[in-house]
Structures are given as structure tokens and as C-alpha cells.
Design a protein around this nucleic acid. Structure first.
Length: 439
RNA sequence: GCGGGAUUCGCCAAGUGGUUAAGGCCCCGGAUUGUGGUUCCGGUAUACAUGGGUUCGAAUCCCAUAUCCCGCCCCA
């Protein structure tokens, strides 16, 4: 037998029985973001490799070891590992800086990172996210965080914790950076390879290195003194204080986590995460922050910006399973042509309708109807000859007949029957008799 | 990249060295050729992850590989 081809490591099929929760997340995104003035943008799944090297940062794990990169016609292309860089590219390329600020965009779609899969982490996963361009004031930070919480609330996940920190700006970090490099330089030889590589380019990232020998160095008193010092400049401190004030006044609960340093190079000032206790070790459901220098770094006009992304698989893991919706109507008939014609007529009236194509016997068709639909329409020889249909309520087993010629008032005239349950059946039967139908 | 656990039909699952590898669900059919969801009967499927090894004999013991799960790292 021919070898079957399996789904690739770290990727998953989203099967029909699981799709409802995805529709829910997507519909909630469209509704909540649209209501807040955000427009959806869809950018390509692959971009120039250089976009991510310059955008996400070439000292990050994402760029260094997690990208799916390939060559085509002497171009280096990469499957997007995240979508902020792509959205910023599109913002610049399409001259969106000329639109009146703020420009508010949202997106959803698959992302790709070559990592070891585990709970809450796949190689192809999905993110939904927002980006806001053009506002430096911390009201933008507050609105964006509030938007994330509103989205989670819409999904029925209101009890998640918000963690907040500020990274300062390039100016106020300059001094700290220089000081840190000088303090660590005597210990350079003892650092791990990752830290050595980041030493000049991005020394701040050394601080959350988990290698024991590095941690020992960072624990030295002279190093700790530098780390613990508050280095944020007055402008950045003010920005952070204002954000906290906005959040306090908006009734948003949060905790400040000084150790929250995100692994993407483009962040400055505000960074935040939203976490759940129910996700195991990959507990961040949402991560984001401000990236005021990214637009200019990618060749655009200097434009302040802020955004976040949520992992949709992680969201889905927190949401209850949703049962498949049943069909409205399953047509039971031995005559496929008449069944198709009738299905088409009911579909045009916005009913979800299916019928048997497998040529099953009457009893088997009805069995299938009972499993998959709320109502059966029986369209056998008697009905076709008599030009009527038999509508059967599959919960109550009650049946009525209805003329085939004109379905336009079907819903109005069968409303009582359709909405009834068995205890109301007598009443509905009475009203059916009054409106002239045979029972 | 580094640790730990797991893998028996589409799904769940018994079996821990000895004839043809239980059972349940799902699916299909019959009893009942125009009235279902209950019941009874029957059917389908190269199911012991893959490749080696030990043994008279392996789903069962050993080794390797793959995949999944749980951590580390990192991130959503």
C-alpha cells in the first residue's frame, strides 16, 4: 500500500468539528475591532527576509533560529513569523502616513516559527492582532490595552491578568546600555555564546538569559547596582505614569512587572502581556507594546505606533467547545431531482438544508435526518403527486403538510409548529387547523 | 537545541513472554422495501508508530528513529 503523507510536525488540521470556535473568534474580532474604528488589513504570508531582519531584529531568537526562509529567483523570502513588520511595510508602502492619524488596523492569520512544538506552541499558528499608528500619547496605549480586554471579554474570558512595564526609549537607554556594557566587559569571556553575540548589539537582552554561569555574573553586586537603577528619562517616566493613570481611571486591573522584557527588538516604552493560569507554561495569551522607531527604521516617516497580538490556538484552548449546529431541514426523498429542487427553494429562503445523495432507504434517510437536523421534510411519491410536502418536527415527531407551489409564507405559516415543543403541540395543532392545513 | 512521559482499528480502551489481539463508540446493513433517535442481529477495517535485536515464541523485554504530550529556552 502506498505510504500515506502525514501532517507536518508542529502543524494541525482544524477539522470541521472544531471550526465553530474559530468562527467565533473571527466574528468577535471583526465586531469588536470594527466598533473601535479599526479596519482589517491582509498582508502576504511571505515577505522579503530582510524585512524581518530589520524589523523584528537580527539579535532575536525569532530571526536567528526560527524563521522559515527559502530562496526563489535569487530572492531570500521568509514565511512571516509575526505580522507587525508586514503591516508596517504595507503602511509605509501605501503611504498611510498621509491619512489622518491615528491609523488603526487589525489582522488575523497564520504565522510560522521553527520551534520545538509543545502545549500552546506550534510551528504554524494563528494570531489576531491590532496596530495603531500616529499617536505618541499614552491614551493610545490605554485604548489598545482596553481593546484587547474588550475582545477577551466578548469571548467570555474576562478574568485574565495584565502585566505592564516600560522599557524606556533609545535616548534614556543609551546611558544605561553603555554602563551595562562597561560593567560586564570584564566578565565577557565567561558569558554564554548567545550573550556574547548580543553583547554589543542588544545588551539588555542579556538580563533574562537563563544560563547558570551568566546568572551568576548578573548576580554580582556591582552588576546588580546597575540593573536595579531606574534609568528611564523624565519623558518616558511621564509617559508610563500617564498610562497607569489612564488605566486606573478606566478601571483596568494590572500589575507592573519590572522583569517583563519582550523578545522582539522593536519595542520601546510600554510593553504588556495578558496571561492565563490555565495554559501551562505558555501562559501568555496576548503580548504587545509600543514601537515608535520601527516605521522609520523600515524607511517610513518617523511615526509612533503601538500594537499587540494574540495566539488564537491559545485562545481556543481557553474557550469551551462549541457543538456543531444542526441543519434546519433534511429532505427525505427517493427522488433526487425533486429533492435538489426543493432544497434550492428552501436554501433561497435562508434555511440550512441537506438531503440524501447516497440512495439510502426511507428509514435510513429519516435516521440521518434525526441525527443531523431539527426538521425533516418528507417528499415521497405521495407528496410529489399531491403537490405538497410533509414537515416533521424531529423532536416531537409531529407532522404537518404544506402545499409545494408557493413557499414564500412558509415560515410565517409554520411558525407555531416550528417553534413549538411537545407540550405546546396541541395548541399549535389547533392553530394549524384554523389556518386550513391537514394534520 | 536539552530533559521526562507516551504511542494497540476513525475515537476510547483491555491485554505486562505462550493457540485466530477483548470490548465500547462511530460508520454500514438487516429485523421494519413511506416514519427516526430505543432494542436485537450482522458487517467493515493489512490496529499493536517505524526499523532492528533478544527469545523456541514478542503488543509485552532491549536499542535506535519518528510523532505527540509535559517541561527548559523563547514566544502568541
Amino acid at each position: 500500500m502506498t505510504q500515506i503523507i502525514k501532517v507536518q510536525k508542529g502543524t494541525k488540521d482544524i477539522l470541521p468539528q472544531d471550526i465553530a470556535v474559530w468562527h467565533k473568534m473571527e466574528e468577535a474580532a471583526l465586531e469588536i475591532f470594527t466598533r473601535a474604528g479599526y479596519k482589517e488589513i491582509r498582508t502576504p504570508i511571505f515577505e522579503a527576509t530582510e524585512l524581518f531582519q530589520r524589523g523584528v531584529g537580527d539579535t532575536t531568537d525569532i530571526v536567528n533560529k526560527e524563521m522559515y526562509t527559502f530562496e526563489k529567483s535569487e530572492r531570500s523570502l521568509t514565511l512571516r513569523p509575526e505580522n507587525t513588520a508586514g503591516v508596517v511595510r504595507s503602511y509605509i508602502e501605501n503611504g498611510m502616513h498621509r491619512l489622518s492619524a491615528p491609523v488603526k488596523l487589525w489582522y488575523k492569520g497564520p504565522m510560522f516559527r521553527y520551534e520545538r512544538p509543545q502545549a500552546g506552541r506550534q510551528r504554524q499558528f494563528h494570531q489576531v492582532g491590532v496596530e495603531m499608528f500616529g499617536i505618541e500619547d499614552s491614551s493610545a496605549d490605554a485604548e489598545v490595552i482596553l481593546l484587547a480586554l474588550n475582545y477577551l471579554k466578548k469571548l467570555g474570558l474576562p478574568n485574565l491578568s495584565v502585566e505592564l512595564n516600560t522599557l524606556g526609549c533609545t535616548n534614556c537607554r543609551k546611558e544605561f546600555r553603555a554602563l551595562l556594557i562597561e560593567t560586564l566587559r570584564p566578565h565577557y569571556d565567561k558569558l554564554c555564546d548567545d550573550c556574547k553575540a548580543r553583547f554589543e548589539k542588544n545588551p539588555l537582552r542579556l538580563l533574562d538569559c537563563k544560563v547558570d554561569s551568566c546568572k551568576e555574573i548578573f548576580a554580582l553586586p556591582e552588576v546588580q547596582r546597575v540593573i536595579q537603577a531606574d534609568y528611564t528619562c523624565p519623558g518616558c517616566s511621564m509617559h508610563f505614569e500617564q498610562l497607569k493613570s489612564y488605566l486606573d481611571n478606566l478601571g483596568v486591573n494590572y500589575t507592573v512587572n519590572k522583569l517583563l522584557v519582550r523578545g522582539l527588538d522593536y519595542y520601546n516604552r510600554t510593553v504588556f502581556e495578558i496571561k492565563s493560569e490555565n495554559l501551562g507554561s505558555q501562559n501568555a495569551v496576548c503580548g504587545g507594546g509600543r514601537y515608535d522607531t520601527l516605521v522609520s527604521k523600515l524607511g517610513g516617516e518617523p511615526t509612533p505606533a503601538i500594537g499587540w497580538a494574540m495566539g488564537m490556538e491559545r485562545l481556543a484552548a481557553l474557550l469551551p467547545e462549541i457543538k456543531d449546529d444542526k441543519l434546519d431541514i433534511y429532505i427525505v426523498s427517493g427522488n433526487k431531482l425533486e429533492a435538489i429542487k426543493l432544497a434550492e427553494r428552501f436554501r433561497a429562503l435562508n434555511y440550512n438544508v441537506d438531503f440524501d445523495m447516497a440512495g439510502k432507504k426511507f428509514a435510513k434517510q429519516l435516521e440521518k435526518a434525526a441525527k443531523t437536523a431539527h426538521f425533516a421534510i418528507i417528499l415521497g411519491e405521495d407528496e410529489i403527486n399531491g403537490e405538497y410536502l410533509t414537515l416533521k418536527n424531529l423532536e416531537t415527531a409531529a407532522q404537518i403538510q404544506f402545499p409545494l407551489e408557493n413557499l414564500s409564507d412558509f415560515e410565517a405559516r409554520t411558525y407555531k409548529f416550528i417553534s413549538t415543543n411537545s407540550s405546546e403541540w396541541l395548541q399549535s395543532k389547533h392553530s394549524m387547523l384554523m389556518s386550513g392545513f391537514a394534520i
